[in-house]
Amino acid sequence: AQASVVANQLIPINTYLTLVMMRSEVVTPVGIPAEDIPRLVSMQVNRAVPLGTTLMPDMVKGYA
C-alpha cells in the first residue's frame, strides 16, 4: 500500500511546511504520496491541518 503524508502536529493556516510537521503513514483515503515530502518542504498550507490529518493536494498552495 502507498504511504501518504500525515500531519505530525497541528499545522496552522498559512504555515510553511517543515520535515518535523509531516510523517508518512498508510491511510485511507490516500493523500499526497509520502515520496513528495521533500517537495512539500517550504510550501504553505491554505487551511489549519489538525494532528493526524492526511494532507490532500488541495490543502497545499502550489502543490496540485
Rank of each mutant, 00 (worst) to 15 (best):
R47L: 13
I32V: 11
V20R: 05
A1E: 15
A64K: 07
A7F: 01
G52H: 07
P50T: 11
D58R: 04
S42D: 09
L40S: 00
L51Q: 15
V6T: 11
D58V: 12
E35K: 04
Q9N: 11
E35F: 05
P57M: 09
I32R: 01
M59C: 03
N46E: 13
A64S: 11
N14K: 05
V5A: 13
A7S: 13
Y63V: 07
A64W: 03
A7N: 01
I37M: 15
G52L: 06
S42R: 06
V30C: 03
E35H: 13
V6C: 03
Q2E: 15
G31V: 02
P29I: 13
M56H: 14
E25R: 03
N46D: 12
M21H: 15
E25I: 04
V60S: 01
V41R: 06
T54N: 02
G31L: 01
A1I: 14
N8H: 11
V49Q: 02
T28A: 07
A64C: 07
A34H: 11
R23P: 01
V49I: 15
R47G: 09
V6S: 03
K61V: 15
S4A: 04
A34K: 09
V5Y: 01
L51Y: 08
M21G: 03
T18F: 04
Y16E: 14
M43P: 00
Y16G: 14
S24K: 05
G52S: 11
T18Q: 13
T15L: 03
P12M: 08
P29W: 03
A64Y: 03
T28C: 05
T54G: 03
L51D: 11
N8F: 05
R39G: 10
G62C: 05
A3S: 15
Y16N: 10
M59K: 02
A1R: 02
D36H: 10
V30I: 14
V45G: 01
V30A: 08
R39P: 03
Y16F: 13
D36P: 00
V60L: 15
L19E: 12
L19F: 09
A1H: 05
Q9V: 15
V45R: 00
A48F: 12
A7E: 01
S4N: 01
L17C: 02
M59L: 07
L55K: 00
V41M: 07
V6Y: 02
V27G: 03
P38S: 07
M21N: 09
V27M: 06
A1K: 03
P57K: 06
T28M: 08
L10Q: 14
T18M: 13
Y63D: 04
Q2F: 12
V30Q: 09
I13K: 09
R23H: 08
Y16S: 11
R23L: 13
L19S: 11
I11M: 09
V27D: 02
V27Y: 02
V20N: 15
P57H: 09
S4G: 04
P38N: 15
V26Y: 11
T53F: 11
G62F: 08
I11G: 01
P29D: 08
I11D: 01
R39V: 05
V45Y: 00
V41D: 08
L51K: 10
A34Y: 11
N14Q: 08
V49C: 03
P38Y: 07
M43E: 08
N8L: 08
L51T: 08
R39W: 06
R47I: 10
M43C: 03
V60N: 01
V30K: 04
S42E: 06
V26K: 03
N14L: 15
T54K: 04
A34P: 09
L55E: 01
V30G: 11
Q44E: 13
L17Q: 00
E25S: 05
L17G: 00
R47V: 07
S42P: 02
E25L: 05
L40K: 00
L10R: 06
M22E: 00
V30R: 03
L55A: 01
P50N: 09
V60F: 06
I13M: 12
P33A: 09
V6K: 05
N46K: 08
Y63G: 06
P29C: 14
Q2H: 09
E35T: 09
A1Y: 09
M21R: 03
P29A: 08
S42F: 08
G52D: 15
T15N: 06
I11S: 02
M21T: 03
L10H: 14
V6D: 00
I11K: 00
M43K: 07
S4Q: 02
V49T: 06
P50Q: 09
K61F: 09
S24M: 10
P12Q: 08
V45K: 00
T53N: 10
S42K: 12
Q2P: 15
Q9E: 12
G31M: 03
V6F: 02
R23F: 06
Y16I: 08
Q9D: 11
S42L: 11
D58Q: 11
S4I: 01
G52A: 11
M56D: 10
L19Y: 12
I11W: 01
R39H: 09
P29N: 04
D58N: 11
L40M: 11
M22D: 01
P50R: 08
P38Q: 14
L10P: 14
V27N: 03
I32Y: 02
M56L: 06
I11Y: 01
D58Y: 07
I13H: 14
P50V: 08
P57L: 04
L40A: 01
M22C: 02
Q44C: 03
R47H: 11
A3I: 13
L55M: 11
P38R: 05
S24I: 13
Q9K: 08
I32Q: 00
M43H: 12
